[in-house]
Amino acid sequence: MGFKLLSKLLVYLTASIMAIASPLAFSVDSSGEYPTVSEIPVGEVRLYQIADGVWSHIATQSFDGAVYPSNGLIVRDGDELLLIDTAWGAKNTAALLAEIEKQIGLPVTRAVSTHFHDDRVGGVDVLRAAGVATYASPSTRRLAEVEGNEIPTHSLEGLSSSGDAVRFGPVELFYPGAAHSTDNLIVYVPSASVLYGGCAIYELSRTSAGNVADADLAEWPTSIERIQQHYPEAQFVIPGHGLPGGLDLLKHTTNVVKAHTNRSVVE
Rank of each mutant, 00 (worst) to 15 (best):
E101N: 12
S193K: 14
L9G: 11
A165V: 12
G240D: 06
D164G: 09
V108Y: 00
S30F: 12
V75C: 03
M18E: 14
T60G: 11
A259I: 11
V187F: 00
V256P: 04
L127Y: 02
S22T: 11
P232A: 09
G123T: 05
H260P: 11
R110C: 06
V194H: 00
F168W: 09
H154E: 10
Y175N: 08
P152A: 03
E39W: 10
Y188H: 04
G148C: 05
P244R: 02
S113H: 12
K251T: 13
R110T: 10
Q103I: 12
L143T: 04
V187Q: 00
D125C: 03
Q103P: 07
T222P: 08
V126H: 08
G53F: 08
S191A: 12
H154Y: 10
A59K: 05
I100A: 06
D214M: 03
R128N: 13
V54H: 02
A21S: 13
Y34W: 15
Q61M: 13
F116W: 15
V54L: 06
I238N: 05
K251R: 13
R141L: 10
T36Q: 10
P138M: 08
G53M: 08
I40W: 14
I20K: 15
N92P: 01
P138R: 08
H57T: 01
A218T: 13
A133L: 13
L73K: 01
V124Y: 02
K91M: 14
A218D: 14
P170L: 05
S70C: 05
G105R: 10
I224L: 06
Q228I: 10
P138C: 05
V37H: 15
L6K: 15
S16T: 14
G89Q: 00
A90W: 08
P244E: 04
A234L: 04
E101K: 14
G240L: 06
A209F: 07
P170F: 01
T261S: 12
H241F: 04
V11M: 07
V266T: 14
M18L: 14
Q228L: 13
L204Y: 10
G246K: 12
L97T: 04
I227D: 02
G72I: 01
G53K: 09
S137R: 07
G242A: 05
D216R: 07
S191W: 14
T134F: 02
T109W: 07
L195F: 07
A94S: 14
G177M: 00
I20Y: 08
G105F: 03
N262A: 12
G169N: 05
L217M: 10
V132L: 04
I224W: 02
G105D: 10
S155I: 13
V166E: 07
S205L: 09
K251Q: 15
I227N: 07
K8G: 08
T207L: 12
R110W: 09
T153L: 11
S31D: 09
L159R: 02
G246N: 13
T60M: 14
T207H: 14
G242S: 05
L195G: 00
N255A: 13
V132F: 02
I100D: 01
L247F: 13
A87E: 00
V194Y: 03
G240W: 05
M18C: 14
N92E: 02
S62A: 10
G72H: 02
V194I: 09
D29A: 11
H154Q: 10
F174Q: 02
T153R: 10
S208D: 13
V121H: 01
T60C: 05
G240M: 05
G240N: 07
Q49I: 09
L9T: 14
Y188A: 02
E39Y: 12
E99G: 10
N71D: 04
P69H: 12
A94W: 11
M18P: 07
E101W: 08
G122A: 09
A192W: 05
I84P: 00
V108S: 01
V166H: 08
R110E: 08
V75K: 03
T60Y: 10
P138T: 09
H241W: 01
Y202L: 15
D85H: 04
H180S: 00
L127W: 01
S22M: 14
T14Y: 13
V37Q: 15
F116K: 00
Q103F: 10
V108R: 03
G123S: 04
V256E: 04
I151M: 09
S56F: 14
L185F: 05
T253W: 02
D216V: 10
Y196S: 01
F63V: 06
R142T: 13
G2T: 07
Y196C: 04
L204S: 12
S113L: 04
D216Y: 05
I227S: 04
V132K: 05
V67E: 15
E147T: 15
G245L: 02
N262G: 12
L5Y: 15
Y188R: 01
H57G: 03
I224K: 02
D248I: 07
E101Y: 11
G72V: 02
D214Y: 05
D216W: 04
V126W: 08
L247Q: 11
S160G: 13
P152F: 02
P23Y: 11
P232T: 09
V124N: 03
L243K: 15
W55C: 03
V171T: 05
G240I: 07
P69N: 15
L5W: 14
S27R: 13
V54I: 08
L173I: 14
S205Q: 07
N255I: 09
E157N: 14
G53H: 09
I100F: 05
L249A: 01
S31N: 10
P221Q: 08
R141V: 08
E203W: 01
D118S: 11
S160Q: 13
R46N: 07
G163V: 05
L83K: 00
A136G: 09
V171I: 09
S162W: 09
A165R: 14
Y231L: 01
A15R: 09
T36P: 13
A234N: 00
Y202Q: 15
R76E: 10
S264H: 13
G177H: 01
A215W: 03
T222E: 12
S38R: 10
P232K: 14
L81Y: 01
S139K: 11
S160L: 11
V42R: 10
L243M: 14
F236E: 07
M1R: 06
I151R: 06
V45G: 04
V257Y: 05
V132S: 04
S161Q: 14
T93P: 00
H230R: 15
E233C: 05
I40S: 08
P232L: 08
T14V: 07
D118K: 09
H115A: 00
A259C: 05
S38T: 10
N255D: 13
H252Q: 05
V132A: 06
E39P: 10
A179H: 02
V112M: 07
G2W: 09
G131Y: 04
D77G: 09
G89A: 00
H57K: 03
E225C: 06
A111M: 09
A144S: 11
T140C: 05
G43P: 05
G78I: 08
V42D: 15
L106W: 08
A178R: 11
D52A: 11
F63M: 07
R167W: 13
P35L: 09
V54G: 03
P23M: 09
G148A: 08
I238F: 05
S137I: 08
V194M: 06
H180F: 00
A111P: 03
H117A: 00
